[in-house]
Design a protein around this nucleic acid. Structure first.
Lengths: 344, 344
DNA sequence: TTGAAAGCGCTAACAA
DNA sequence: TTGTTAGCGCTTTCAA
């Protein structure tokens, strides 16, 4: 592969000039510029990105930490991230933590700042301390889907009002006339779906029901988890007319459980989820859900990280980080075919 | 961030020695080694991967070209690739071509050989010429799911016997007693699913039916595509008792179409797909399909590419490339709930 | 407008 | 076993 020096030699200039031409720095005579361009063309020169990364002190690369790229939600997000990055001439490294903080730390230690200029974190179950250490080493970190806009994490982040999402979902069921509603929370009790559940409880409360007393199950954030949770809930509380799930995947699982129990959705059981992943549209019946601005979140996250990466590393204090919170558009209800008024 | 020289200074040795310790090159005294290790620890030193890439002449990175990471098949494959790479200390750059050869070429030109040591190609609709050019520039290319083991592409590849997959699917339907079977081919007429369809036709032939005359529709390789194709087929040929699809996504779409037409699957219509993506297990009814060794293919692809990357670049002729064909385990039928004998 | 020179952080001969 | 010396390909002052 031809190098910049070879281009320079051929064009009868020095490497510095070629570099200036490449970066459109201006300070190059038009005739020279043309000669350089011609040499580039003739030689088929392409800049060596690793060399450039070293010289510039920062690679054209961003790492996306996810717990599993195979989770049907992430690809949509990753796609949006990749698109946004490509537009800004950067590249995306996918880091799969498999939900294991060790793996996450290993990734961060290896590539943050040395092979990737910054880090996007998408629910990868990482130690907060590791993230702050990463920041301190000079690789900015952005949390991609913070659940509580009003409770910033002390790290730059893109926040989604998931509490509102929970409220909207519950309000929809309530408006349809449901009163006996079960909840499936796709994480641990103290987990990241807490805000969504809070919203649900609040909406119930507001409707004069004791939301905290509504039957609830905590389950893994998967279809299987939702399936198991729904099976249990329906076995224990046969009078439930609707199920609220904090995420689409468990909601989809709940629909399967209903199908296997011979319950017709939505006639005998309504199901609502949160996020609006592609599958929600494609399931039968199509899932009613609360759509989250995934693409917008991805773009904001990339924009925020880009800014941080390009800003001369003013060592960020927690307070400064706290200030870097972008909130995406409010979630909105998408009514499809999995919800209906309860049978009397 | 501390550099190797700083570590050297602190340990009272030269950079070369530190490098030797880091690479476990052996030729270092035990006492020195310990001192160096201690300095590394004390300083929190981590090797700068971009610098190393430049010095070694090759980055620790591999590019995976896919048409859309959001296609439910790719994440499973990408996950397996990522795992295999991580085990070998490499990192994964995701390149989304959106099926556009331009975008693909731009990616290849930018990063192949300069930011990524090699390229994995997963049905990204790339120009063959671009791939060969990439190879010539010194960045090995491996095709990840070549469809016809007996017809090598002139590029190193991992091949899957998709013709056999098509045969197995058809044989299953035939064995159940189906005779009026429609086919949904998830690509253009001359597209990459041709081998699968060939297998289908051959199996029909072998059963004494004129497979080539079986109703067939070509459609995009998506649920929507399958939905539309199945709707058409069933409208035009109400006597069909089974549908064969060359991929799971269209098969799933076909099941939805059946549901919307009020046809019970599998009682009134059997549906079979190919690949066995995660969704196939999770759909209701669960999809009968022919499982392809995805993980094995990913691992073989990584192994093959790794070998090519590490082999001192003997400029490969097409003939040599042709020799680099790995074939994964044969596909195998997975019977689930979407197939049954035809109603008399 | 162009050139000269130093250096990014690391590796790898080759010498000692 | 360890050090010396050149780079890898590019960017970027600073001079001319």
């Amino acid at each position: 592969m031809p190098t910049l020096s070879e281009v320079a030699r051929r064009a009868g200039v020095t490497p510095a000039t070629v570099s200036n031409v490449l970066r459109n720095r201006g300070r190059v005579g038009e005739a020279t510029r043309l000669r350089v361009l011609e040499a580039i063309e003739a030689l088929g020169y392409r800049p060596h990105l690793s060399a450039r990364a070293l010289a510039e002190g920062r690679p054209p690369t961003i790492a996306l930490m996810v717990s599993s790229i195979a989770n049907p939600f992430y690809p949509e997000f990753a796609l949006a991230v990749e698109n946004a990055l490509r537009r800004s001439g950067r590249f995306l490294i996918i880091c799969n933590t498999a939900g294991d903080p060790q793996t996450g730390r290993a990734y961060l230690e290896q590539i943050a700042g040395t092979l990737s200029a910054g880090v996007l974190v998408m629910n990868a179950n990482l130690d907060f301390a590791d993230l702050r250490a990463t920041e301190r080493r000079g690789a900015p970190v952005v949390l991609c889907m913070w659940e509580r806009p009003l409770d910033p994490p002390g790290l730059p982040c893109v926040a989604v009002d998931f509490r509102l999402a929970g409220e909207l979902a519950a309000q929809h069921l309530l408006a349809l006339g449901h009163r006996r509603i079960g909840a499936i929370v796709g994480s641990k009790v103290s987990g990241i779906h807490a805000a969504r559940y809070d919203g649900f409880v609040a909406a119930m409360q507001a409707a004069g029901l004791d939301g905290a007393l509504a039957p609830v199950r905590y389950a893994p954030d998967t279809t299987q988890g939702g399936y198991a949770a729904a099976s249990e809930l329906l076995a224990r509380h046969p009078d439930l007319t609707a199920l609220f799930a904090t995420n689409d995947l468990p909601a989809l699982g709940a629909m399967q459980a209903a199908a296997d129990l011979g319950l017709d959705v939505p006639r005998e059981l309504s199901v609502v989820g949160i996020t609006d992943i592609q599958l929600a549209r494609e399931s039968r019946p199509a899932l009613t859900t609360v759509a989250v601005a995934t693409v917008e979140a991805a773009e904001l996250a990339v924009a925020l990280l880009t800014e941080l990466v390009e800003t001369p590393a003013a060592p960020t204090t927690p307070a400064q980080s706290a200030a870097r919170v972008c909130v995406v558009s409010a979630p909105r209800l998408v009514v499809r075919a999995s919800t209906a008024p309860p049978r009397k």
